[in-house]
Design a protein around this nucleic acid. Sequence first.
RNA 1: GCUCGGAUGGUGGAAUUGGUAGACACGUUGGACUUAAAAUCCAAUGGCCAUUGUGGCCGUGCGGGUUCAAGUCCCGCUCCGAGUACCA
Length: 1045
Amino acid sequence: MLFEKAASKMNYDFREIEAKWQKYWAKNETFKASNHSDKPKFYALSMFPYPSGAGLHVGHPLGYIATDIYARYKRHKGFNVLHPMGYDSFGLPAEQYAIQTGQHPAITTEANIKRYREQLDQLGFSFDWSREVRTSDPNYYKWTQWVFIQLFNSWYNQKSDKAEDIEELVSIFEKEGNTNVQAACDDDTLLFSAEDWSGFTEKTKQEILLKYRLTYLADTEVNWCPALGTVLANDEIVNGVSERGGHPVIRKKMTQWSMRITAYAQRLLDGLDTIDWPQPLKDSQTNWIGRSEGASVTFNVIDNLDTERSRSDQNVISTSLNHQHQIEVFTTRPDTIFGASFMTLAPEHELVAKITTPEQKEVVDAYVEATAKRSERDRMADVKTISGVFTGAYAEHPFTKEPIPIWIGDYVLASYGTGAVMAVPCGDQRDYDFAKHYDIPIPNIFEGIDISEEAFADKANTIIADSDFLNGLPYKEAVTKVIEALEKMGQGQGKINYRLRDAVFSRQRYWGEPFPVYYVDGMPQMIDLQHLPLELPEVEKYLPTETGEPPLGNATHWAWDAKNSKVVSNEMLKQVQQDGHSELNSESYEGVYPLELNTMPGWAGSSQYFNRYMDPHNDEAIYSQEAIDYWQDVDLYIGGSEHATGHLLYSRFWQKFLFDKGIAPKDEYAQKLINQGMITGTSIFMNYADFNVLFKIKLVEVHEVEPIERESESELQLLVQVFYSKQEECTFDNVKAKFLEQAKQKFVSSESIKSYSLECTVTGGAFFEEKRRVPYSSVDPISFELDFRKLRKNEFFKNAISVAPTVHRFVGTTEVEKMSKSKLNTENPDDICEEYGADSLRLYEMFLGPLEQSKPWNTAGITGVHSFLKKLWKLYSPFMDGSLSGVEAEPSAENLKTLHKTIKKVEEDIENFSFNTSVSTFMICVNELTAQKCKSKLILEPLAILVSPYAPHIAEELWERLGHSESIAEATFPKFEEKYLVESTKEYPISFNGKLRFKLELPLDMGKDEIEAAVMAHEKTHAQLQGREPKKVIVVPGKIVNIVG
RNA sequence: GCUCGGAUGGUGGAAUUGGUAGACACGUUGGACUUAAAAUCCAAUGGCCAUUGUGGCCGUGCGGGUUCAAGUCCCGCUCCGAGUACCA
């Protein structure tokens, strides 16, 4: 008993140690950050997770561990560290679960968060949990709604290049109309004067302002699925039907909220130069924004064929006047305008119906209808098929005045540019292919270029020919000249086009932030801040209503009483609508209006959470000025690259907006960002079509004809091949049933037997006919041999039949894939924590490879880091068993060298986020100190601090056992001192013609010539040279010697 | 197609500015301890050839080049991964 107790104190009992310190940190609020400090601030942030029902898998903590190491390191370095965590807790899975089970998403979400928290706590993160945020918490989304209102009340002034108050725009309108206003606004905004403005009705004014607001209502084309009553994202549609249920999907216009992110396109692009983010991520944002420079050109549509005919008769009639229709195109190659031989409109282009000639109407209508049926994604995926039809109409070339046929084709997308192109087949491959296909002329306007096979698109080597005033000019000059000419004619100007579209901000979902919006006379009104949050109403069903309204349409208590500023029953609404302001009804019915039924998208809540962490409980403001002045911005942000064009773009946009409004002090919120690589899982496949089942059967025959029933018992062993289709489960019952069926056919003759019974004992096993996934956790991580005991732990395989291992080995084939629950290749951190402890898991995740690289998960190597921790523990044992009893060994020079080498490397590694190499460094350090039998506190104390960011639990325990009563978290990071590393000699590699031949130890302070002399005098040098005279001797002091000859 | 990554032993991966390729760990093999197993410890471990010892040759996806010296720099490919996709 006594012995056991002593042993447990001596052994590395990670379970006890980890639980102890996790409790200690929570109790002492070790990692609580203060908004006031004399220390410099450091804000370390991990992207907050969506709390899914599956819990964390080993891929999740990778980034958290990295952030945690850095945060703990910075704390050791004397920083006041903010390291918060929260949950992005609105989202689809909880809603879908609610649809299936009727359980409120809030309940599911709460349960999932609880599970996440347990798992996170287990890993020993230094989070300041007092600052936790949840996007689905009304106290949080109050401020999401508030930002929305700020956006609504703002417009983008292109003159000052920032967002400004909408009231200022109104006063400009009142003074001078909108003729001088340069704003990011809808394309169809008409010009008006101050007089016009004052003459507009209030509703018209509101309609006009909506065209300027940074969040606005617009008709947006969406993928509408009538059967599901919902809008689908592009990837929810497969082959034109819904992925779920296979219902038809149509493109439909819906009034939805949009965010005018395009106003910030240029600033989002420019800002990338100011932040330290990974280049691939910057590239993908750059591509997503998709800036292209060129010109917009207006082509006049020729009104009727008579005009055209008379022109071809050389009776020149001016056709540039009174054209009914104009087509505006965007081109990046205005220099090739003389090569334009046709135009193509997107089938959805509004002019299609107007300009199509009666003769062509039928084919055009058919084509338009056919394309409408295809989703945009389908159209884009199908690049090879060329299709289009001629409208019968012609446009006039701005310079040559020649008629140009107008076609429609689905290779032109309505959503990019103006939905119309001037087709220059000689300079664009798509135009070229289209022209070839429909036999349209392909004029060549390039000097010395053969275009008989393909288009020529190389701007750099372009010399324009056959183009009137552009002849002989290279690309750049030609562009300038054309734009000048077009501007003079009023038929075009230089233009910068962006691929980036305004972001649709409405979702027909339940589990999201409600808009703080009600409608008076169809115009949106914002609810005042003091009445926020506008909380999600309760609903009976989480599906869209029968009339196709979003789920909030099911709410019975969802109308806004503007007078009393509160949510009231829909009954009140109906009353008012039916009766108007009738005197029959009491006053309270007045001023009740419908509330918005859409909710905000997933990215709304995540677009400003990093700021809210600075002051998460503030009920008066999104955060106090004081808090943001102190914390400023995120110093280190770690998360996955899959958010490159979603969250990471939208949040930059919101931040820039908050900056413009003076609410945030920085216009980029994260100076440094790192993408952790994906941890891929190893999927295991079993494939045993030919494996047999060995059964023992007992056959009881009962013969009808005999007077006395005779029981005959025969025990048979037989091999039966059991085949399984993919759908069938490999359970004992399934196998047995199949076996009995076969046995019956084989052994029971129907004539003599009245009845029979079969029993079977399984002595063999059965497996699958086809390649089938089995859980990664059920195989040996090295041999991939299946372990049936482990397999049966998985619910799906709980009845799987095993075979004695001596009979047959089941070895799986492997495939590396993204980790996901459905692929059965996830690895649960809990199991690893249980077996090896959190410190082992933390070290191992870092040891796996470079943080940013994607890497396969394999538990095989975890024993390595675990035994490292045991060795580390052992190193400190003299301080635990009392054997040292106060005697303190002075550190040897060797000890100091090892320590300082480690300090230097680990510090460099952390600064460079090269966590995998510091784990190696620790291993080397511990191996060396063990070999040196180091017993010095002066070495072991700093070592504990070095290890503490990586393996905080063991570090705390060792620190305590060294006699400290305070947490190691605030201990000062050891200072590297060069003096301990100074060497007096160097083992020079001596190479001949670049090949290493031998090594020679020489003093480091030896000069070049001395080294050469020493090397040349060496006997091995003579042996190598064999009397030859070296041509050259290269000596790099402190590095290498190379002898050429 | 375009953009961006990447390719090093049986495996994950090391290798500051070009300067000893394969650190560290896993695995494997052999050994110690043990009745045995686990745990722990020790040794070997890129390939080929030779050998009493010493040694030699080849080796960082492929083909060239620059250099005293190339995993690292340059040119041309191949393959793999990620993102994006008719962007006018």
